[in-house]
């Protein structure tokens, strides 16, 4: 099999050698300043997404369980919440939402219909949302530990474990 090796020069690599620019410290400070201005809007988006999840969780459409479209819509909302919660430091909400993602993915793949577990996760997310009365760290940990027990009960895998195995940067 013929194989060619290229060593392309890109404008990005030229930027690494160009005069001027920013140091790592300056770049990160600049980025954090820019992002902080979005925190208020991010809180609103999280609130809206949790409300959407609550609406879906309250009204299964497919013979007593959620339709594939509803499951996909829930996963999309969860993905958004994980991104925002992780970015703005809402660790407990991030952990609860990741648990819900794993649960939804597991239920989708296994064909199991466990509505109650989904609702428990959504309620937990409401408890941990920005603006909710803060829970003591001990209580937060206990709640999150209970959520992971649900996953263990069903024997569902965690996407984060798979990512670690694949060596994906996080």
């Amino acid at each position: 099999m013929k194989q060619l090796l290229h060593f392309p020069r890109t404008r990005l690599s030229e930027g690494a050698r160009a005069f001027g620019g920013v140091t790592r410290e300056e770049a990160i400070k600049g980025a954090l300043d820019q992002m902080e201005s979005m925190r208020g809007d991010a809180d609103l988006v999280i609130e809206k997404s949790i409300a959407t999840l609550e609406q879906i969780a309250a009204a299964p459409q497919d013979g007593g369980f959620f339709s594939p479209g509803q499951l996909s819509a829930m996963l999309a909302r969860c993905d958004q919440i994980v991104t925002l919660a992780g970015t703005f430091g809402y660790r407990a909400l991030d952990a609860a939402t990741c648990c819900l993602c794993d649960l939804l993915e597991g239920l989708r793949q296994s064909g199991l219909k466990d509505i109650a577990s989904i609702r428990v996760h959504v309620r937990t997310m409401r408890l941990l949302a920005p603006g909710a009365p803060p829970l003591a760290a001990g209580h937060q940990n206990r709640v999150l530990a209970e959520l992971t027990k649900i996953l263990a009960h069903h024997g569902f895998a965690r996407a984060s474990d798979m990512a670690d195995k694949a060596g994906i940067a996080s």
Binding site: A31, L32, D33, A42, L84
Partner: peptide, 14 residues
């Protein structure tokens, strides 16, 4: 919103 967030980071990098 995620696009906006990442774009803000990139702007911060110059």
């Amino acid at each position: 919103f995620t696009r906006g967030l990442i774009a803000q980071m990139l702007r911060g990098f110059g």
